[in-house]
Simulated scan of single mutants.
Amino acid sequence: MTDWWQIFPQGRQTLTIEDAEGEKVAIAYGEAGTGQPLFLLHGIGSWSYSWRHNVKPLSQHFRVICPDAKGHGFSPASTAPETVGHQIVELTRIIQALTDQPAILVGESLGALTALAVAQAHPELIERLVLINVPIFPRQLPSLGMRSLADIPLDLVRWFDQSRLIRSFAPVVRSITWLMRQEVVADPNSITDEEIYWLTYPYVEFPGTITQFATDLQQSAREIRNLQTGQPSIIRTIQQDLAKVVCPTLILWGECDRWFPVADGEKLHAHLPNSQFQVIPNCGHNSSSSAAPVNEAILSFMQTEAATR
């Protein structure tokens, strides 16, 4: 199968940053095109491969930077316990390291929530935002698979991960991934063997990725419970600080998103100044896989904003 990183002229590159705990971590990323920096930010449990249909079209107009978040894809996990909201710190440092001009952030799912938080904390770093199916008003972890993994003791997950027993179960992992994939795409017939292979590749090949996924899920589950019970929650803080996001923002929502309803996008639009809202027809939660309409919406938004300056 074709190496995903070959889509980038220089292939896979590596950037070393300090994570939220002060540990050095190597962030894998790809870069294509020239011009204003545009970061493509994947969701939880995914990696840069999820943007496979978006890099080439967008890189005709922008300097597209496609990183793997820590512990996802080809970016190794850290060994220290995680701080809640570590993704915000790490994305900030990735942006600061790779560009000295305000960037465009295009985030999907948790990547969009992280982008929103960075725009609140560091508005000077961000020129424009595109938020796709952002979990800003969650009720629970959106899938049974996620909730099940979040309930497994982390020590057990870590043992299974480090033992690399998953390699023996790779066909089972791919079958489960295929079933879960049906939840996030509008047309299950569009799922290919190649994408299942690449989506599961980091989990099968790299120790630490399963543990990172489980850790982030457990943190997310706690934050959502805190949100629902009125306890301090980083999600509540992001909700309360929406007015701090003053940059032009495009909110995209998959019409067929079974994880988070379109009404959440409408609500976000109502609370987010200087935002536009657009529903992508025949599109599930993983909207980046519906390449043409998403790319068209992003480019139209960029051109409209440029024309109004």
Rank of each mutant, 00 (worst) to 15 (best):
L38D: 02
A80I: 00
R63H: 07
L38N: 02
D100A: 13
F39Y: 08
Q87I: 02
P57W: 07
C66S: 14
A69F: 12
G107I: 06
A115K: 14
A103Y: 04
V64P: 01
A119L: 13
V118R: 06
T92S: 13
H122S: 10
L113M: 15
L113E: 08
I104Q: 13
W47L: 01
C66V: 12
R52C: 11
P37I: 12
H53E: 09
A103R: 03
G107R: 11
L40D: 01
P76D: 14
L125Y: 07
V118A: 09
G71N: 02
L116E: 12
S109F: 09
Q36Y: 05
L125E: 05
G111S: 09
S46Y: 11
E108K: 05
Q120A: 11
A97W: 03
V118W: 10
T79D: 14
V64T: 09
P102C: 07
S59I: 10
G43A: 06
E127V: 02
L38W: 06
L125M: 05
V84T: 12
P102A: 07
A112C: 14
L125K: 03
V84R: 15
P81I: 10
V55P: 01
L129E: 05
P37V: 01
F39E: 01
N54V: 09
F39L: 06
P67T: 04
R93P: 01
T92C: 05
S46E: 04
N54F: 10
G73Q: 07
V64N: 09
S75F: 00
Q60E: 12
L58Y: 02
G85D: 12
G111Q: 13
G43L: 05
Q60L: 07
G35D: 07
K56E: 14
T114M: 12
N54G: 08
H42F: 02
G111A: 09
V106C: 14
L113C: 09
G71C: 04
S78C: 15
P57I: 08
P81Q: 10
H42W: 03
L131A: 12
S46G: 04
P123W: 14
P81G: 05
L113D: 06
S59C: 14
Q36W: 04
P76K: 10
D68K: 06
I126F: 12
I132P: 00
I126T: 09
H42C: 00
L58P: 03
P57T: 10
P37S: 05
C66P: 00
V89Y: 07
I126D: 03
I95N: 00
I44Y: 00
P81L: 07
A69Y: 13
V106D: 08
A103D: 02
L110H: 13
A97I: 06
V84H: 14
V64R: 11
Q36K: 08
D100N: 13
A77V: 01
E127I: 03
Y49Q: 04
G45S: 11
F39V: 00
V84S: 15
T114G: 05
Q120I: 10
A121M: 04
Q36E: 13
P37G: 06
E90G: 04
Q101G: 01
L110I: 14
L98E: 03
H61T: 09
L58W: 10
G71A: 05
P102T: 06
S75W: 10
T34R: 08
F74A: 03
Y49F: 15
T83H: 15
P57F: 15
L105M: 13
E108D: 10
Y49M: 01
S75C: 02
I94T: 02
R52P: 00
G71H: 04
S50M: 15
P76N: 10
G71I: 02
L113T: 07
L38P: 01
